[in-house]
Design a protein around this nucleic acid. Structure first.
Lengths: 195, 195
DNA sequence: ATAACATGTGTTAGTGGCTAACATTCAGGA
DNA sequence: TCCTGAATGTTAGCCACTAACACATGTTAT
């Protein structure tokens, strides 16, 4: 059986996936805090060291998402004539359209856990900090500036706040609502706020 | 010597203050992560249990602020004719004017530590979550509504984002800039964003 | 004043997240 | 087939944090 030349990588990826699945399952069943890393590792048939080699922290099993680079890329390719908030808005809806069909359920489960668990909320909030910087940088690059201006930082922060509010509301409603519609609504509010 | 009937409370408050001061001093000197709770407790001449009786977590020594209730109260008393964002804006500047004269230095030190330390950033970000809810509720009460609308939630989130951006920028500039002016600028951006 | 009580603190013995050091196994190339 | 290196296991330990119980010191009532 001449295995594909990546049997090792495959095994590693399988282990990682297994750990993550068991973790989410146990979190949902018994709660995040009541589930120990040791239990997750045992359930997945590995040692706790393997857990930490795949996930730097217990929290990271839940709130790692890899959407940031895509979002940044989408922003950079928006036409220069668009104002910054609209650029983020359209980049977000485009990205969501690409993500939702496959990731909807996973996104919802993770969002729910994050909303319910203080430790995860905190970590997620710090992730948002990184996303904020990323958004500001993307806007900066799109505008051809060297360094982000205060204005772009405020707009990036406000846009991300609108986006997050939409996702939060969607999650609280059990994922029944149309997420893209909520995002559109949030940005409409942002645009019309001052009037 | 019939002591005032609060010698106990006074001692407790003194212990608390001592612990907090030693903590901030050690954090500044050696960094947050490199300072253990045991070291802080020893420096303050108490046991680590006393530390945790005064501060529920190591993080809370740094990022506990008691400004939220004041801010909420200031929002509720803004005239009903003001739009939500402006109400938050004016409440914030009023509050800052009251706080800054006395707390400027402490605020700056704490902000700097928070910006530099991932664990503190995460916790602070979760505090912001609470503040966001508080702002939305205050706007809701002011508008005479029963439950916060999606619109008010977005506006509260965006306003807080603007406010936080101003404080962050102020901190990064070493506190040299005029914080109130930065806040005004941030809200001006928010108002003019869509045009 | 003295007894009774309440409360802030210390001691001790844990649990759980997380890391370092070293041993082991096993896939893939020479 | 042997050899290298990557993935994992084992062990021991640090640190944040908690529970249980003991102690001592203000406070209050008698």
């Amino acid at each position: 059986m001449t295995a594909a030349p990546n049997r090792r990588e495959a095994k590693k990826a399988a282990t990682r996936r297994s750990v993550q699945e068991h973790a989410l399952r146990l979190f949902l069943a018994h709660g995040y805090d009541a589930t120990t890393v040791e239990q997750i590792a045992t359930a997945a048939g590995v040692s706790h060291m393997t857990f930490f080699r795949h996930f730097p922290t217990k929290e990271s099993v839940v709130d790692t998402d890899d959407y940031d680079p895509m979002l940044a890329e989408l922003i950079r390719t928006r036409p220069a004539t668009e104002d910054p908030v609209t650029a983020i808005h359209h980049a977000a809806t485009t990205g969501l359209a690409a993500i939702l069909p496959a990731d909807r359920e996973a996104l919802l489960i993770r969002s729910r856990l994050i909303l319910e668990t203080p430790a995860l909320r905190a970590r997620q909030a710090d992730n948002e900090h990184a996303t904020r910087v990323l958004l500001a940088d993307a806007l900066t690059a799109r505008a051809g500036l060297a360094a982000p201006s205060f204005t772009l930082e405020v707009l990036a922060a406000a846009s991300l706040a609108a986006l997050t509010t939409a996702v939060t509301t969607w999650t609280r409603r059990g994922g029944d609502a149309d997420l893209v519609a909520l995002v559109n609504e949030a940005f409409r509010v942002l645009h019309e706020a001052p009037r």
